[in-house]
Amino acid sequence: MSDETVTGTHRIELDEPKCVAAGQCVMVAPEVFDQRDEDGVAVVLDETPAAELLDDVREAVAVCPAAALRLVAL
């Protein structure tokens, strides 16, 4: 991908104060999520993930124990 304006069809929303640092999202979709070292709070590496990652992201949204993630269609 050479054009930085190229985006996916969906955007990930993270409600950071809700995050409980369980890291379930990182386990399911390591290309898309990470955790901060200091408190384990989730970090979205790719807010508009490519289509082939969406299944994993949906799984991450589903297993998030704090309901802190949402995948919104753009």
Partner: peptide, 10 residues
Amino acid sequence: LPPRALRPWR
């Protein structure tokens, strides 16, 4: 401990 300290154990 930071999260990455637990991951290899998991």
